[in-house]
Structure formats: C-alpha cells, structure tokens
Nucleic acid binder design. Sequence first.
DNA 1: CCATATATGCTCAAAGTAAGCACAAGTTAC
DNA 2: GTAACTTGTGCTTACTTTGAGCATATATGG
Lengths: 335, 335
Amino acid sequence: MKNSSASAATAEPARLSSVVVELSAAIAAVTDESPKILVVQPPDTAARAGLPCGPFDPTGHRTLEEGLRTSVNQQTGLALGYVEQLYTFGNQFRDPEERAGGPRPVSVGYLALVRQTEVKSSAKADWVDWYRHFPWEDARKGTPTILGSVILPRLTTWREDAKGPERLRRRDRLALAFGLEGAAWDNERVLDRYELLYEAGLVFEASFDSGQKVEPNVVAAQMVTGAALTKDHRRILATALGRLRAKIKYRPVIFELMPPTFTLFQLQRAVEALAGGPLHKQNFRRLVANEGLVEPTGHVSAQTGGRPAEIFRFRREVVHERPAPGVRVPVRVRK
Amino acid sequence: MKNSSASAATAEPARLSSVVVELSAAIAAVTDESPKILVVQPPDTAARAGLPCGPFDPTGHRTLEEGLRTSVNQQTGLALGYVEQLYTFGNQFRDPEERAGGPRPVSVGYLALVRQTEVKSSAKADWVDWYRHFPWEDARKGTPTILGSVILPRLTTWREDAKGPERLRRRDRLALAFGLEGAAWDNERVLDRYELLYEAGLVFEASFDSGQKVEPNVVAAQMVTGAALTKDHRRILATALGRLRAKIKYRPVIFELMPPTFTLFQLQRAVEALAGGPLHKQNFRRLVANEGLVEPTGHVSAQTGGRPAEIFRFRREVVHERPAPGVRVPVRVRK
DNA sequence: CCATATATGCTCAAAGTAAGCACAAGTTAC
DNA sequence: GTAACTTGTGCTTACTTTGAGCATATATGG
C-alpha cells in the first residue's frame, strides 16, 4: 500500500505510473418510445463522441457519486436524480494518450436515469438513440438483420479461426451470448455480446485501441456495428443497458424515466424500448396491475386514436409491499 | 480530463490531492456448513484486521482484475478462480491516513469464491466466520437476538432523533432494510442494513472514522454489532454478501464453493449458510433436480449417520440450457 | 353506419410452488 | 437384535402464476 505513494515521490517515473480516476455517466431517458442516451461531441470534431465524464477530484469531492453529479452538471447542466454505479474499468490502452506516456485511466461508469428530455445546457450534448451504438440489441421489430447478415457469420469465422481449447471457449461464449445451439437469447447479456465483437475486431474501437491496420472487409463490418465512442465509453454503455434491462424487472426504475402520469400502453412502450423486444399487451397490463405498481388517476387520455386510455401514476408504496417490485417483463412475443 | 494531470505537475499540492486505487478482495468459502471469509491480521497487532488488498499498479497490471489476482497471490498465496467486481468506494476519511495528508483511497472491491479451505500461505491470514462481522444476518436458527435486543431499539431511537423530512426518510429506509411495517426481510439488503448501522453510529467504524468521542452506551452497542475491520473493508464485505446472496439464485456460483461431488443436503447447507436462513428440504431438492443443476454420480455417501445420501456433481451444461441457472432458494421456513 | 384502431376485461389450460405425508435405509443406544 | 433416531427420497394436494387468446368497449375517419 505504501509502495505506490512512495513511487509517486520520484519525479519522472511518477508521471508514467500515475493513475487518474475518471467518472463517466450513461444518462438514459425514454422519449417518443425510443431509448435515448446523452453523448457529448468534443470541440475537436475529428475526435469521437463520448459520454459526459470528468476526473475525480479528491479535494473537492467527498464521494465518487458527488464527483459524478458535479461533473455532469458542469458539463451538461443536468441535475441528475437516480444514479447507480455500474462498473470500474482499468484496462490498458483504452485511452490513446496512455501510449504517449499519459496516466492510466481508471474509469468508474455510472448509470443515471432522467425524465423525458430535460433541456440540456449550451454544451454540445445530444440525445441519441441508444441502439445507434448497439443495432443488434433492438429486436422490437423482429430479429435485427445485422445479426444474421454480418455479425453471426463473422463471429463464426472468428470462432473457427482459433485452435484447440480456445476454439471451444469461443464456441461456449458465443453460444451463451447470442443464444446459439439451443441456448436462449438473454437480453441482459449486452456486455458479453459487445466484448465478443470487440475481441473479434468487429467494432471500430477494437482496431483503434490495438493501433494495428485492419483489412478492408473488417472495416466494412465495423461500419454496420453501430456508432463508436471514445475510449471505453461504449463498453460502459453496454454495461448500462444490460444493468438497466435487468433492473427494471425487480426495481421500479422504469418510473424514473416516465412522466408523472401515463397510460399503460405508454409504459409498455417504454419497457419495450429498453428491453429491446415486443411484449404481450394483455399480460403486461395484468402484471403491472397485479403487482400494484400503478394506480389510476381517474382521468383518461383521448390522444390514442382509439378507445381512450386510462391514465395511471406510479404507486410509491409498492416498494414497501413487495420484496422486488419491478415490471415483470412477460414473454417476448415473436413479431 | 487534462486538469488532473496538470495539477499533478505541481509539487506539494499534488501529494495532497492524489488518488490511490486500492484493490480489495472478499474471498469466500464454505466449510463445515458455515460461510468463511479470509481476513489478514496486520503486523501491528493494535491495528484492525482487514481484507487482502493491495494498490493498483498501472505499470505492472494490464487490468484491475489482474492486479487483484497478483496482489492476493502475493499476500496469501491463493490463486483465485472465480472473481467478480463489486463496487468502487471513494468516500472521504475512511482511511485515517487521509486526515494526515495521505492520498485519497479509491477502493475497488471484489468478490472471490474458492473451494473449501485451500491452504493459505505463511501470511497471517485466517478464515473466519462471515457472520462474525454481521451477526444480525444469520437467521438460520431463528431471528438473531441482537436484532430485537439492541439493533432495532437503537435504530428506532436514531430514527426518532431526526426531525421533519429526514425522520421520514429514516423511517422509510429502516422499514425497507429491516422489513418493518409490513415489508418483508430481504436477505440481499446487507449493505443497506450495514449503512444504516454505520450512519446511526452503531458500528465501531463509524465513530472511528468520524474521529469523535462516543457515549458509553453507544460503545456498548458497538460491542455486539460484530467485529470491525480496517478502513471500509466491512462495507465491501457487506456488499459481497448481498451480491452473493442475490447471485446464487440466478447463476450456479454456489458450485464454486462446493467440492467436486456432494450430497444434496450438503448443497442445501451451503446455500443456507450463505442465504442466512433455513430452507424446506424436499422443495429444495426438487428445485435443484428440476433445474438440471446436478446429476448423480452413482455413488452414495455413508457419512451421514442416517440413510446414505446419493452423491451428485454439478452439471456444467445447464448454463447453456437455461437463461438463469441458479439455486432457486425456496421459501424460508420459520424455525 | 361501417371499417378500423386502440383499450380493457375475461377465460382457460399448463406449469410452477409451498407444505406436508409417508416411507426407505442407514446408525446408535440398550 | 431391536427400538429409537437420523437422514434421504418419492409423492400428493391445494394454490398461484403464466402464456395465450377471445371478446367487448370506445374512440376516429370516411
């Protein structure tokens, strides 16, 4: 424990072996039935976009979460409500500056949920569709075509390129992550899938980080595997999506993303947007009603172009009544 | 992002505002039907015991997990198998050295699972009963007496000491964490409970960290709220227990703690040890069997002092067959 | 009024769960 | 050896949850 502070006392080597703790936030919202996240465009337009983030300042920040909130506030003007820590990454060479002798970034990723598209500040921050970065994760209108046309064929090739036990390991991981060979597609395994694409060199970040030239056909594949982000931000985003998909099932976090009142169909659309697949309507409403997650406001909405929908609000009391109050996502209906 | 490395260039302030990333491991095992964790006793016997940990070295470690594995190996001689990141804490003043101008520790906590009590090295590391640090979490033989005799009365006092909205917030948190006012006891909320005890000053670490004198009756309460650990290690341990209790339900992690073959009752005892409560025997075995988690070896055990039990082994294939293969913990039987 | 769209209520079969009874097959006390 | 006890295992039963779909209610646009 003492060693690190001791090495920090020396002059030049200290710069080389130093660590910077970076706090990054995947800030999610749901608007117009589509999941959004906030990305910031750096002033240098050639650089890749990234998540709102900033360095942890031990003198100014009493906790990591406080540091995150102030960073995000300065950068985007948003005052975050629900915030949850995701994961801490410290992999080598995810930041190009490190090769140039820069400090090793240890990045703590957070998931934040905000209601609607609260206006952002002057900063160059944009709400973009979450699936722009993960086109293979959106199965709301059937299995994404990229899966069958590009991703699975290339991953299969990558798997067969390996020899011996490594090939078996790859076969295993592929089957589990993408629901092959009898396994079921698990919508929470977003990170597993992204990591496989990264290792197989099918996302832009992979060849960028390795610093090596890539073949033209690989470049072509990278074109359709979603928009890249700076450093490991897409990885944080994958972690966030996976965690959020898991969490809506046992905590009422979906309501952090909804307006104060809503129809059950709006709620269903929001859950579908995050879960990435269509749900059985009647069962969905029965479940949310049975769980006591919502209560009627007594009003109805006429905006629907059909029979008016009853308007509901979230019942805060559920958290006291049930051990795991969440939206029980019913079976995925094939479309 | 540039600011932090810039501030590191100056001489004295850099020491004050520096950050050290510390990697800590909650290494769990189950022996003799009781859950164990590995704690190391510092050479200075006056100091509190702690988890195996070490600083993250950006020059030597390519990833955080690699850093953890080498740290633990050097310190205890253990070669970890299953390892999972838990949470990253960066709270101020959890390390007394910080008040003396030391660097701010950002500690990344890990959960590691090892089989049986693999021999430890020469280091002063001991396997201790996990519940020694959390006596209120073990309900295998009925509700722990400390809960009713000390913890809940004092927490109630603490709750009522607050005024206005803060009192309501405390009421809410207390009810949720400890299953009061109609809520159910959720065995996964280990961290929530520990944090409440910490905030209420009922664990030793709280008064130590604050640096303030405490009243004699509070000291008395701290005597029965389990063994303290250094810095925030008990918090990491609480996180680990909560996560493990959640995880055994949907991932077959329990088998990381079991010997290669075992009887169903041994398996049940192991799950009970972690879950902290008794289970219904017949239903437990039906669930484990139905899930296809285990398969018979064809042998029987004669060690049981009763009818010999069939010996099983883990069926690795389940991970391919079911989306969430875990030990479905049946209802808690009241004892 | 009709076609059509969405909202909502209801049924029904299949599967899963909690609880407990009964019996099997060993060990230990005497 | 036998009774008493311990642990293991099969099975029943009432109840709850789930997946799926049918039917009906109430809007809109022609």
